[in-house]
Amino acid sequence: MAIKLFLVEDHELIRGGIKSLLSGGNYNIIGEFDRPRLAFESIAQGNIPEIIVMDISLPEMNGLDAARHLKEHHPDIRIIILSMHKDEEYVMECLNQDIMGYVVKDSVADEIRQAIDKVHAGQKYFSKEVINLALNAHKKIKTRQKEIDEINLTRREREVLALIADGKINNEIADMLFISERTVEAHRANIMKKMEARNTAELVRKAIAKNLL
């Protein structure tokens, strides 16, 4: 049985290109659309593909949002993103969304076939070029998480925090640091956010506990 496919891509030429790449294989393109809405409508009428090959930048709704929508309403349909983007954000977003495949548009001819076959067999397929990106991104996120976990106050924030702990009020701090009261308020709000404190007492308590004073 040929694999039933939808092609969602707003560029006619690209659609043509993909079609010619897939011709002669075990593929049956049962729908071609230039925007996700039309694909949804076709599905609603009972024309249900096994795999949707979809671009990211599309009219009315982008491919990532469309994938989210499909995941929710038709979890059986598998999605392969066919994209111009070689950026970690896009790749990470697809991984997060549990999208089965990500193929960059300028990949070699048989990549798209490989992707469809693997995804059809229940495996994931990501273009070689983007796999590295994803791994890098993952590493970065880990270091970032570490950075976020250790509270990083700016020099000015540490000064403000010390004065708050000293019992000084905003306008006194402003005078002492030669900055405006509004700026002090902003620093205070930033510190509270970073230290997840709801009031001054909690802030001071946490600051002492974390040796920030």
Binding site: H11, L13, I14, G17, L21, M84, K105, D106, V108, A109
Partner: peptide, 8 residues
């Protein structure tokens, strides 16, 4: 996209 197509 056109360039991609040419590449393919």
């Amino acid at each position: 996209q056109m360039i991609n197509l040419v590449k393919i």
